[in-house]
């Protein structure tokens, strides 16, 4: 008979001891090669744009647009979540993960209508990233301006 578990901490320790660990090495490896492929695809699109005589800035924008489209399309086909489950951060960290985090709530909440469902809930996952990402960049911009690092 096991010792009775008195506190929440004891219980957590007991659970941690019994539950299997995530296969970190395998996850890292999968994230690495899938993420690498996504970035290589981006680079390939960029090179094609450059070959066709586009400017660097324009090519970069086109890469983002194409990757966002592919990710959104695969999300709609119920394929992206399988890639995400397999690759983890590999598909989450590139812009593909961001596109997925906006398209998936939009699909999920479509059943609640286009205004309050799709419109209202679209940013439930990506919202915090946008709010704090944009806020942080504004604060950093002000700091840069004060110290005269940007003319």
């Amino acid at each position: 008979m096991a010792e009775p578990l008195d506190t929440r901490k004891d219980y957590q320790n007991f659970v941690n001891k019994k539950s299997p660990n995530s296969p970190i090495l395998k996850n890292c490896l999968n994230a690495f090669w899938v993420g690498g492929i996504i970035c290589s695809v981006g680079q390939l699109i960029w090179e094609i744009c450059k070959l066709n005589g586009l400017e660097t800035q324009t090519s970069t924008t086109i890469v983002s647009i194409v990757l966002i489209f592919i990710s959104a399309f695969l999300t709609a086909l119920n394929i992206f979540n399988k890639i995400g489950k397999f690759a983890g951060a590999g598909s989450l960290v590139p812009i593909t993960g961001f596109a997925n985090s906006i398209v998936s709530p939009a699909m999920e909440y479509k059943s609640e209508g286009y205004v309050l469902g799709v419109g209202g809930k679209m940013f439930t996952v990506a919202g915090p990233v946008l709010v704090y990402g944009i806020s942080a960049s504004i604060i950093i911009g002000i700091i840069y301006m004060i110290f005269g690092l940007v003319s």
Binding site: P20, N27, N81, L92, V103, E108
Partner: peptide
């Protein structure tokens, strides 16, 4: 999942437990 966690199509990973 919709009510408490993430959309099903979100490409996230679940712990084994």
């Amino acid at each position: 999942e919709k009510q408490f966690r993430f959309p099903l199509e979100l490409g996230n990973q679940r712990p084994q437990t």
